[in-house]
């Protein structure tokens, strides 16, 4: 028998020894419990893309709100300056 063939036999024997004695029961329990097999690459990429999109939207909203608040503060400051100018009778 070729050494390779012996090696293949050993490989299959070794693989069989790697399964736990109650393997079948564990599989059935996992299937019943709805434990997912590892997610596919596509679903992982989709999850990553969705997470990135949510982060981008959150950053954009915070940025817009912050800019709006800054505008309001600036407008209030100018209004105060304008009122002060009114009170002192300076030409507008």
């Amino acid at each position: 028998m070729k050494p390779e063939n012996q090696a293949w036999e050993q490989l299959f024997e070794r693989a069989a020894s790697l399964l736990s004695p109650n393997f079948a029961d564990r599989v059935l329990r996992a299937a019943r419990a709805g434990i997912d097999a590892a997610p596919s690459m596509l679903s992982q990429f989709a999850l990553g893309a969705a997470t990135a999109a949510i982060c981008f939207i959150a950053v954009a909203l915070v940025q817009a709100r912050s800019a709006h608040q800054e505008d309001n503060r600036t407008m209030a400051d100018w209004q105060q300056i304008a009122m002060a100018a009114d009170d002192s009778g300076l030409p507008q």
Binding site: A15, L19, L28
Partner: peptide
């Protein structure tokens, strides 16, 4: 479930060998 279990028992070593390969 008994049939599902029997299928797993019948094929588990062959699948394990395939996965190891």
């Amino acid at each position: 479930e008994a049939a599902q279990r029997e299928i797993i028992l019948n094929y588990q070593h062959r699948v394990a060998g395939f996965v190891y390969a």
